[in-house]
């Protein structure tokens, strides 16, 4: 298979995934046993007419496939539906809030990759030394601490007591520090563990023995050869993690009251505004698929075995 074919295949697969996830998102809201209308309005105050009107407004009295095709056609035209609370269209709202989320995602991704790869590699090379122990502890805590808790701890320490950084808001780089740290720690935890294992596997390979037998220094053996081999499988996981970070913003933006798309979701949950939740989830799915596609493609360029395999 040529490279062009591969890229085409990957892009088309990603496209199918997006269509699939649109069906999925749609099904979750409209097919699950819960009545979307009843979950949108408070049953204690709802009159039957209100329910019927809302149902009609949402097109819920039509068969599923019609509902879906309508929804899908709208999505293609950039119409992600509108809020049931204030009838605002969903997509413009998402687009408006996305930059704040993107900034947070990127900074925390950079943070987690830098911390994760550095500690992961050092941890494997200096196995059972103090740096390994520290790295493993960071790794374990990273994957075990809920972000909403680490976020709150950071606020307590750096905002409430030390008063160094703002606890809320989404303007300026200062507001980015704490949420990125809190979110980045999770990613770092996963990446440390992943890179460490990957590195240890590589170090046990036969070719490392060859390299040593050639008289290369440990530095060259580790950082030139072992590292490159270890990072190739790690990249996929790192890609997936960046996607997870995007999802993690929902929670962390609530903690830090940032005006990102996560915040929209949190508000929509409170207001039981299903179309907004649906819109944001679908939007995130698209971004997630695109990120993974990019990672996957970069993977084919980095690994010569994939690049050159006929």
């Amino acid at each position: 298979m040529t490279l062009v074919n591969k890229v085409l295949l990957k892009i088309s697969t990603a496209f199918v995934s997006i269509i699939g996830s649109s069906i999925l998102v749609f099904s979750i809201i409209y097919l699950l046993p819960g009545d979307p209308v009843l979950s949108m309005i408070d049953p204690s105050v709802a009159t039957p007419e209100m329910v019927a009107n809302l149902r009609k407004e949402l097109g819920l009295n039509q068969p599923f496939y019609i509902q879906f095709s309508e929804y899908f056609m709208n999505v293609l035209q950039g119409d992600f539906g509108q809020s049931v609370v204030n009838s605002e269209p969903v997509l413009p709202k998402i687009v408006e809030h996305f930059p704040a989320t993107l900034a947070l995602t990127i900074t925390s991704a950079v943070l987690s990759v830098v911390i994760g790869v550095t500690f992961g590699v050092l941890s494997a090379i200096y196995r059972n030394k103090w740096i390994d122990i520290i790295a493993r502890i960071i790794g374990l805590f990273g994957i075990s601490m809920p972000t909403f808790w680490s976020g709150i701890l950071l606020i307590l320490i750096f905002s409430v007591y030390l008063n160094w950084l703002p606890s809320i808001g989404s303007d300026g780089w200062k507001t980015l520090v704490l949420p990125s740290l809190s979110l980045g720690l999770v990613g770092a935890g996963f990446i440390i563990r992943m890179v460490r294992n990957s590195m240890l596997d590589v170090i046990n390979e036969q070719f490392i023995v060859t390299l040593r037998a050639k008289g290369l220094s440990e530095r060259v053996v580790m950082y030139r050869h072992a590292l490159r081999n270890a990072l190739i499988p790690a990249i996929t996981i790192i890609g997936l993690n960046i996607g997870e970070l995007l999802a993690g913003t929902v929670v962390i933006e609530t903690v830090f009251s940032r005006q990102g798309i996560g915040r929209i979701v949190a508000d929509a949950i409170m207001a039981k505004d299903l179309p907004v939740i649906q819109g944001v989830v679908f939007f995130s799915a698209i971004v997630y698929v695109v990120i993974n596609l990019l990672v996957d493609l970069s993977y084919s360029f980095i690994d010569p075995r994939v690049r050159r395999a006929h």
Partner: peptide
């Protein structure tokens, strides 16, 4: 180990059983 490196590869070289596993696959 440091002094040994002036021997390894220069005065003494080694080849192994499984040539496929003995080369770094990404170089």
């Amino acid at each position: 180990q440091k002094k040994l490196r002036s021997i390894c590869g220069k005065k003494v070289a080694m080849i192994f059983q499984e040539p496929m596993a003995a080369f770094d696959p990404v170089f």
